[in-house]
């Protein structure tokens, strides 16, 4: 059980790292990766993204992780923090029948 949890944590850290990379390289967030805390808000006063960035963010995540988010899947609740984005990516990667199952 402990070993399974360690693997899950390692995988999540990899996804979080990828999300940070999309934010920095794709959306121009001017922060070092370790300054982007997992639960920092993305929009408004947080990392300063806006509604236009949201579209680029989704496209960037799809390219980075080779996934496709079904229409309407990336609703506002999942676009709140790096952590919620990581949850969304992992859910789609783990979906047995593609994104519609997520």
């Amino acid at each position: 059980m402990r070993e399974d949890m360690m693997k899950a944590i390692a995988r999540r850290e990899e996804v979080v790292s990828g999300v940070r990379q999309v934010l920095i390289e794709g959306l121009g967030v001017r922060r070092a990766p370790d300054e982007i805390d997992p639960d920092a808000p993305l929009f408004g006063t947080g990392l300063g993204l806006d509604s236009v960035d949201a579209v680029e963010l989704v496209v960037g995540l799809e390219a980075k992780f080779g996934v496709h988010f079904a229409q309407g899947y990336m609703h506002r609740r999942l676009l709140r923090t790096v952590g919620t984005l990581a949850d969304a990516v992992i859910a789609v990667l783990d979906a047995p029948r593609g994104p519609d199952a997520a």
Partner: peptide, 9 residues
């Protein structure tokens, strides 16, 4: 506290 986004370097 995960508040680095509110700090400047």
């Amino acid at each position: 506290l995960q508040l680095q986004w509110r700090t400047s370097r």
